[in-house]
Nucleic acid binder design. Structure first.
Length: 279
DNA sequence: AAGTGGACCTGCTAGC
DNA sequence: TGCTAGCAGGTCCACT
């Protein structure tokens, strides 16, 4: 099984290696095939640098590095659709789908990503260069107190896209990918096809609460393991066992037994219960 | 400004 | 058994 990299999987991955890698010294860095963007830094120049506290913003991880003197920077990592990170002490040669590897005094951090939609890019700081550009349009963090129903309601004003697509866009709140957007809308009883700008204040409050709770629950369960998602320890998640609608087309709704429907929105599959979720 | 569709790349499964 | 079409966690970019 591979973790499906939405926010919970990225956070579970972060938690699985952040403490172990903090303070480690970089021994060497190796790259495989090109990822989504070029790294934009001489990897050989990073030997001897020290790893700081790994943080997350949306579905990105930031691995800060401290060099000699005033030198500082870091790696912004995204898992794309099929990426996973492993951190362990015993590692063999790079496999066919291993495209980034950082050997450190505490273990080896390795990105495996068959589809190579993922990325590892250099930044002199999180708020400079490429990282700053990539993070610029992101919405609020789901666990930030600023993420309220009022915030969501205000940001949805005038938007004609469906609420499902508005959630996925990530410019209002980050972290809900295809699975969790579907699940949050089911929990909130909202039809995913409803125009975003038409959600009432109470429904926005409900949706904000459900986005937060579904993501929190998924993190607590270790994320979702569809094909082969694992955290950096190699552990699998269990959230997929509790999905109400995602991937359940034709199967009975766990609440009302009506067959779950699948529709296409913005070239992505959406799953919903035609009875429990209302316009 | 907001919305739409194409692009990136590989692997797996269902169906013929 | 073998080939092909369709599908998959994300999100940037060009264009209307």
């Amino acid at each position: 099984m591979t973790l499906m990299p939405e926010l919970p999987e990225v956070e579970v991955t972060r938690q699985s290696f952040a403490e172990r890698i903090e303070g480690a010294q970089v021994l060497s860095v190796h790259v495989g095939k090109p990822l989504r963007w070029p790294l934009q830094h001489d990897v050989d120049a990073l030997s001897g640098w020290r790893v700081g506290v790994v943080t997350r913003r949306g579905k990105y991880l930031w691995v800060p590095l401290h060099g000699p003197g005033e030198l500082a920077g870091g790696l912004l990592i995204h898992l794309g659709m099929s990426g996973s990170l492993a951190f362990s002490d015993r590692m063999g040669a790079l496999g066919q789908h291993d495209h980034f590897e950082m050997l450190t005094s505490r273990g080896t951090l390795r990105l495996t990503d068959p589809r190579r939609f993922g990325a590892v890019v250099w930044g002199d700081a999180l708020d400079a260069g490429v990282p700053a550009r990539l993070l610029a349009g992101l919405g609020v963090e789901p666990f930030d107190p600023a993420f309220t129903g009022e915030h969501m309601h205000q940001r949805l004003q005038g938007r004609r896209v469906s609420i499902k697509q508005a959630l996925l866009a990530g410019d209002i709140v980050v972290g809900a990918g295809n699975i969790y957007a579907c699940e949050a809308l089911f929990r909130a009883g909202i039809d995913p096809r409803l125009a975003a700008g038409r959600l009432s204040r109470p429904r926005c409050a409900r949706l904000a609460a459900e986005v937060r709770s579904v993501l929190a629950q998924a993190i607590a369960l270790g994320g979702s393991s569809l094909k082969d998602f694992k955290d950096a320890h190699g552990s699998q998640g269990h959230f997929q066992l509790s999905t109400q609608v995602y991937g359940r087309e034709g199967q009975p709704c766990r609440t009302c037994a009506t067959p779950i429907k699948r529709v296409t929105q913005g070239q992505r599959s959406t799953f919903y219960c035609p009875v429990c979720q209302k316009k």
